[in-house]
Design a protein around this nucleic acid. Structure first.
Lengths: 223, 223
DNA sequence: AACAATCTTTAGTCACGGCTAAACTTCCCC
DNA sequence: GGGGAAGTTTAGCCGTGACTAAAGATTGTT
């Protein structure tokens, strides 16, 4: 199934899942959204979406956006499973820093055999989340639970547990790492600056108040 | 350097090395040889060889064959280093059977970053040979020593140590594995059948005489 | 030395997945 | 309800690396 699809097809399906259902959305994804996510032109995206529709992997209604079909979602989840297993494996078995595992996994995910996937999962004890807190789809490729709310969506005074941090930006990850902000960290929101200003948060165990930009706060999922 | 070349280019360079210098040959490789090694048409090979010549990676003289240049050889050796490090890592760290590591490495070799290459080499203690006995090019990409002679080239009564077994054929590898024939095994050639007939060999520690076909004996290197 | 067999290259095609430029929808605002 | 901005698709192109068919070079044999 996966083996019969190209890297490009896998990237589109994974991207559609990640910015659609995977982010808790229900509406279709637009051509512009997927094209800018994958950093290709809108025309290229249209082309590929038409092709994916023909393959039965998405439903694409011209001018109206695109949604994954069941087969398309399975492939997206399998690629995501590869990606997150690899991130976890690279971090645990080879000591790759958590800000670098994403880039490595991004390439290798397309070339991991079923056999190796199974061996890696077993070696890790079948983990359920990657180093950034993102859920690893299970072998049966059921849809993992969507995230609840972002750090930005909290109210002043709230206490929350960090669930997931963004995985793709090494600089942000190094910053978070220095602050000790990893999945599982407790956070207390103290106050926020004016319009779009930074959020001030106290993270355990440190008692120091940290300023988190709106962009970053919107990319950190909490519960 | 490696990162700027496609998988196809890497496969041609690796193939040229493997069937040329790497097998102890000195003459140029012919178009037919590389095309059948890579299982592409001769016309496709001509095309690619012309392109590689233009890139300065090979010297291709029409109708006369092709040889690696220094830059081309470096790339070939880097791919080979990736391949053999991966084979070794998959076998040791993930327990992949020795008849399967080649196929996995064949794909992953093109997608291994410098960073991961270094981490894997360090984790393995900088090994000098893969599970099949093939030398792993060092980080500086110096040409490893060519093999000496094959099992077929021995005389009756000779004693030899198995150095390298062929890596690509799972069936042959499972057969050799059952017989306990791995790099380092001592072999005593007892006799051989008529014209192209099988070779009869006793391998330590077993005292049983085994029949080895000419094809297989020519693919086993000894010293 | 000429011919046939074999090897190699040239010519032309295809699928893939990008691109730009231009045309067409949709949507929002007046 | 008309017009313009934003979004989307169509048309046509490019590079990569395969392919087949046909033409050209080389080599061995007589």
């Amino acid at each position: 199934m996966l083996a019969t699809t190209s890297s490009a097809v896998q990237d589109y399906l994974k991207g559609l899942y990640s910015i659609g259902e995977g982010a808790g959305r229900t509406e279709p994804v637009s051509t512009t959204q997927i094209s800018s996510h994958l950093r290709v032109s809108a025309a290229s995206a249209t082309n590929m979406l038409k092709k994916l529709d023909g393959m039965g992997l998405v439903d694409h209604v011209p001018y109206r956006g695109v949604e994954l079909t069941d087969p398309g979602r399975k492939i997206a989840l399998e690629v995501l499973r590869h990606h997150r297993l690899l991130e976890t494996y690279l971090a645990e078995a080879l000591g790759v820093p958590w800000d670098q595992v994403h880039a490595e996994a991004e390439v290798l995910e397309h070339h991991l055999s079923e056999e190796l996937e199974d061996r890696i999962a077993a070696r890790l004890g079948h983990p359920t989340a990657d180093p950034h807190g993102h859920p690893i789809p299970t072998k049966d490729l059921a849809s993992p639970p969507p995230p609840a709310r972002t750090l930005w969506d909290t109210s002043d005074g709230d206490t929350a547990v960090v669930d997931r941090v963004p995985d793709a930006d090494p600089e942000a990850l190094r910053y978070l790492g220095e602050l000790g902000i990893v999945p599982g960290t407790n956070a207390r929101v103290t106050r926020r600056g004016p319009i779009g200003g930074p959020l001030f948060v106290r993270f355990d165990p440190s008692e120091v108040e940290q300023a988190i930009s709106k962009e970053l706060a919107e990319a950190i999922w909490v519960s």
